[in-house]
Design a protein around this nucleic acid. Structure first.
Lengths: 249, 249
DNA sequence: AAAATCGTTTTCACAATATGAAATTATCAA
DNA sequence: TTGATAATTTCATATTGTGAAAACGATTTT
């Protein structure tokens, strides 16, 4: 399938190990060494050595035929960020709002300099905006991301800008640090933000935050629609939905 | 804490990466680089490089302070062996049996040449046998393991013996391949097996299998007790409990 | 304000380490 | 049996990860 995979340059062996496990995750059950090696562009010998090491730690299992993801992962994942069960908590509310407005509603969480789509509800219309769950987007091109950035203050935003280079996804993506600071600070102040075709031409978003009992932001809630359908008064709906989600945390 | 960690010899970097993530899993929330490096006996520089690579793939997260297990793990683990939710399925039945007999009842699943304890219920008595969940034991020293081995036939058992060397845990552990084949074949034939202080002096077990709708063994169910309290008629209780679990799969 | 302290990150020369071609073994078909 | 395919193991090699030390950044102390 995909040969190059993510060529993220870290420690070579680890990149390769990750690639192998991701490949494993793509298949329903057991995969042969041959296939795995091919998927990651590795020689069978190399793949075998890496998989054998992972198997040693039970990160992969070696049933009679081929390889599969191992049980140690389950134990690890259990300890990984005790994420709220968003599906149970938020999905009904996303669906409700989606139904009411006839537009896509997304729940996102921050992760480093990105925002990850964890749940969504899409309307039953021909033209609609659809986010794939698990997808990521840089903070500065999303509504929710701007509110989050705004909360960190001007200097933090500058650092973000330097660090990431503010790479533009469309001609509307904010490129100047000054402009970004402006946008983020007002976003943080008002509690909501827009995305004006900054991530993809044609789509616009409105976003607000979901906070836990201590007021710490734990997620973002946003409506994505064709830009010409967007209506400013949706903000109040969003805020109400966010309140409902907060109540269920 | 523990310096040497598991010195399983595979690819060095991977061993180290695994060690770091295991260390991470031990802590409730975010851990500093310093501590992680120390726990695994690594230099800060090395630990940093490895963690940075893992972070690249979101296997660890880097919140403002320290490191934590990343979100990619949950996505991976979701694809890992679609294990039945044993806790929900079996725990009530384990508890019931445990209550009735006043002895510890364990649920195990096979993993390679080992059996892993995944659930258990312990009685409220002073002297009792307690298995730690997540612990492993070689097939040939457990009741359940012997039934599983028996199902594979004499030659497979011989291969198992060669492969593992039948390392003895107590003076009662079966050391001869012939004896093991005998024990396993009768175990497979009768559907239950014993462990006579083969894993630990003083404790005895009786075990049976739990099978899915196709008759494939998916787990083992066993009673562990001080050897002198063990009663042969417990087998029938075990079989009844196994039936109940099977009904709930 | 400087100065000092502590943790994290980057750099870099070096050798230990992971690599992959090829040889070996295991598995399975014809 | 032979032949073909996949999984391991071996081994010489240079590529790769290593760790000491230095730079950096954030806090605290003087």
């Amino acid at each position: 399938m995909s040969e190059p995979q993510d060529r993220a340059s870290g420690i070579q062996v680890i990149d390769r190990a990750v690639c192998l496990m991701q490949a494993l995750a793509r298949y329903p059950h057991p995969v042969s060494l041959k296939i795995l090696a091919a998927e990651c562009g590795l020689h069978a010998s190399t793949a075998h050595r890496i998989l054998a090491t992972l198997a040693l730690h039970h990160w992969v299992d070696k049933p009679s035929e081929g390889y599969a993801l191992g049980s140690a992962l389950v134990r690890l994942a259990a300890r990984a960020r005790p994420a709220p069960r968003w599906r149970e908590i938020a999905l009904p509310i996303l669906a409700e709002l989606c139904e009411a407005l006839g537009e896509s509603v997304n729940l996102t969480v921050r992760e480093g300099d990105e925002v990850v789509y964890v749940e969504r509800s899409v309307p039953n219309r021909m033209m609609r905006v659809e986010q794939v769950i698990g997808t990521r987007a840089p903070l500065h091109v999303t509504s929710v991301g701007k509110i989050l950035l705004g909360a960190e203050g001007a200097t933090a935003i500058s650092r973000y800008a330097e660090r990431t280079g503010l790479l533009p996804l469309t001609k509307n993506t904010i490129r100047q640090t000054e402009a970004l600071i402006d946008a983020c600070l007002t976003a943080a102040h008002t509690g909501f933000a827009f995305d004006n075709e900054e991530a993809e031409i044609g789509v616009g978003c409105i976003g607000v935050l979901v906070r836990d009992a201590d007021g710490v932001p734990v997620a973002g809630l946003s409506i994505s629609s064709p830009i010409e359908r967007r209506q400013d008064h949706w903000v109040t709906h969003l805020q109400a939905a966010a309140k409902k989600i907060e109540a269920r945390l």
